[in-house]
C-alpha cells in the first residue's frame, strides 16, 4: 500500500560520485516510500552498487544527500547505516572464510553472556531458523570448509534473519 501523499521514507537527492576516470553516479535522485519495493535496473557498470554503497556508508557521495524520514542524514560508515535501520545484502560475499557460520552471522551484533560471547545460544537459534526454512546448515562449521553453492546461499539471508 503506497500512500502517495505521504512523505517518502527515503529520498536520495542529486547523488554524484566520481571515481578516477568515471562518474559512477551522475546526479541520481530517487524516492522510496514505506512498504514499497523498488528495483534499480541498469547494465553492468551503471552504478547501482555504487549508489547502494553510498547509502550504506561504504562510500561518501561527492555531491547530493540522503533524506531519511524527512531528516537529511550523512552516513559515514555501515555502523551508522545499520543504526538507521538500513541493511544491505551484498552482491559479493561479505563473509569471512576462517570464521564459523555462527560467528559470521553474529559479527557486529554479538550477543554475550557476561564478558563472553554467547556462541552456543547463537548456534541454537541458527539451527532453529535453518530447520524452519529447510536449510542444511551446521552453524559450527567454518565457512571455508563448506561447499560453496551448496550450503552458502542460506547465509546470504544474514541481513534479513538478524
Amino acid at each position: 500500500m503506497i500512500d502517495a501523499s505521504a512523505h517518502p521514507l527515503l529520498q536520495l537527492r542529486g547523488i554524484t560520485k566520481r571515481f578516477p576516470g568515471v562518474i559512477a553516479n551522475d546526479n541520481v535522485s530517487l524516492d522510496l516510500f514505506s512498504g514499497e519495493i523498488l528495483a534499480l535496473l541498469g547494465e553492468n557498470g551503471a552504478g547501482k552498487t555504487t549508489l547502494m554503497n553510498i547509502l550504506y556508508g561504504l562510500y561518501m557521495a561527492d555531491e547530493g544527500e540522503a533524506v531519511l524520514k524527512g531528516v537529511p542524514v550523512r552516513i559515514h560508515n555501515p555502523r551508522q547505516a545499520i543504526d538507521l535501520g538500513i541493511a544491505m545484502v551484498h552482491q559479493h560475499f561479505m563473509l569471512i572464510p576462517t570464521l564459523t557460520v555462527a560467528e559470521n552471522i553474529i559479527l557486529g551484533d554479538e550477543r554475550t553472556r557476561g564478558p563472553l560471547l554467547d556462541i552456543q545460544g547463537a548456534e541454537q537459534e541458527i539451527s532453529e531458523l535453518a530447520r524452519q526454512y529447510g536449510l542444511q546448515i551446521d552453524p559450527h562449521a567454518r565457512l571455508q570448509d563448506l561447499q560453496s553453492g551448496g550450503d552458502w546461499p542460506g547465509l546470504r539471508a544474514r541481513g534479513s534473519a538478524f
Binding site: M94, I96, L117
Partner: peptide
C-alpha cells in the same frame, strides 16, 4: 571475534558495522 574478522576480511567486518 572482531579482531579476527578485521584481520581476515576488513571490508566484510566494516559492512557488519565494525570500525
Amino acid at each position: 571475534l572482531r579482531t579476527r574478522a578485521v584481520g581476515e576480511h576488513p571490508l566484510a567486518a566494516d559492512t557488519a558495522g565494525i570500525n
